[in-house]
């Protein structure tokens, strides 16, 4: 069974993070939500592996922080 990588894997973490925020610059909340959705779909297709995708979805769902 394929296993989701959870060790650090991005060569330039600070640069990536800045770029991630930069694409949202000047967008409304609705535009940002749409961009995030497109990004999820693009990355998901790149991954492709259904097992990995299920593990990623589960990881994202279970690390939700309680919101007051």
């Amino acid at each position: 069974m394929s296993k989701l990588h959870t060790h650090p894997n991005i060569a330039d973490p600070d640069g990536f993070y800045a770029e991630l925020l930069a694409v949202h610059d000047g967008l409304t909340k609705a535009e940002s939500d749409a961009l995030n959705a497109r990004l999820v779909l693009i990355l998901s297709n790149h991954v492709g592996d259904r097992e990995i995708l299920s593990q990623a979805l589960a990881l994202a769902a279970r690390t939700a922080r309680a919101v007051a």
Binding site: A34, A37, R38
Partner: peptide
């Protein structure tokens, strides 16, 4: 609301990108 966001994202991508 979020299911509409994803639905529209799929449709926006589908125009230019076969994968969607």
């Amino acid at each position: 609301e979020i299911s509409r966001v994803f639905r529209d994202a799929v449709l926006d991508l589908a125009a230019g990108h076969e994968f969607a």
